[in-house]
């Protein structure tokens, strides 16, 4: 309650001397140098090399992959899969977050741990596990589904499932802390004013977690576009049908089409970077105050 009061008044002007930052010692500069070098060597340099390789011959690399119908199909498939997985993850993510934060039930901690599982399990394992359950021939559930005319593994539904699985925690991990932070005060207030559960969610809870959801969606989208391992197992990697963009990158790289591989990789990376940049630009600065 004190922070509410103190925040309203602008802080009293501190003496000028205290405002200026403390002088930095050699340790501070060393740390800075270390962090910068680390990020350059690990992230900036390798990624920039991809961009440099892509544009070595001007735009011909990008043009090349955009003129190849199989690559275009793969890019389209990747977009379809990523969007489907994000939609699924957003709906379930928000639902599970509400369940984890707003209600008490036996096994809640187990569920919370389970939600984090996709982060710690290798995507290859996820792929294999999905094949075990939904595989058309020997899967536990697959033949039944296939009998009903729905092929999961080696088809788009399987790719969507694998992608949704690996990106599952991203929306939840963004939304849960915000839900915890805003507490139930506003929701209870809405109830006393006559709002039912749905109205409370729609008018009070959702606007409050809006930006957390947007962030979660962007991270999920970036992750979904780039998913490789799980997709490789469940997709079957059929050229022009179930080959996604990341699989194209691998294929081209292995076939010594480095230019094509770098161009495709560059496109994938750019979409993800663009998402994150756009959101950080449009996000209001004082949203959390």
């Amino acid at each position: 309650m004190t922070d509410l009061l103190t925040r309203e008044q602008p802080p009293k002007a501190a003496p000028v001397r205290r405002r200026s930052r403390p002088r930095k010692g050699p340790v501070a500069y060393l740390l800075r140098l270390f962090v910068t070098a680390y990020l350059v060597l690990l992230v900036a340099w390798p990624v920039s090399l991809v961009a440099i390789r892509t544009f070595e011959d001007g735009f011909s690399g990008i043009q090349g992959i955009l003129e190849d119908p199989d690559t275009v199909t793969a890019l389209k498939l990747t977009v379809t899969v990523a969007i489907s997985a994000v939609v699924v993850n957003t709906l379930f993510g928000v639902g599970i977050s509400l369940l984890l934060v707003r209600s008490e039930f036996p096994g809640k901690r187990a569920l919370s741990a389970l939600v984090d599982l996709p982060l710690s399990v290798s995507p290859i394992v996820v792929g294999l596990a999905l094949v075990l359950v939904y595989g058309g021939r020997n899967g536990w559930f697959g033949p039944t589904l296939e009998g009903a005319g729905l092929q999961v593994v080696f088809a788009t539904p399987g790719i969507v499932m694998a992608t949704a699985f690996v990106a599952l925690p991203l929306v939840i991990r963004e939304v849960v802390p915000v839900l915890e932070e805003i507490g139930t005060d506003q929701e209870v207030a809405a109830q006393t004013l006559g709002a039912n559960g749905w109205q409370t969610f729609w008018r009070v809870t959702l606007p409050a977690i809006k930006w957390a959801i947007v962030y979660g969606v962007v991270l999920s989208l970036a992750r979904s576009l780039g998913e490789f391992g799980a997709v490789k197992v469940v997709s079957g990697n059929v050229l022009g049908q179930t080959r996604t963009a990341t699989l194209v990158v691998e294929e081209k790289y292995l076939n010594f089409d480095q230019q094509g591989a770098y161009a495709t990789a560059f496109l994938l990376a750019m979409v993800s970077v663009a998402c994150i940049v756009i959101v950080s630009v449009i996000r209001p600065k004082n949203e959390r105050s």
Partner: peptide, 27 residues
Amino acid sequence: ARKRNVGFVFQHYAAFKHMTVAKNVAF
């Protein structure tokens, strides 16, 4: 609670933070 037609005022205001003052009152 929503059917009792009571007005409740909380110690920590419980203002709807994303709504203007007028919208809060109109809720």
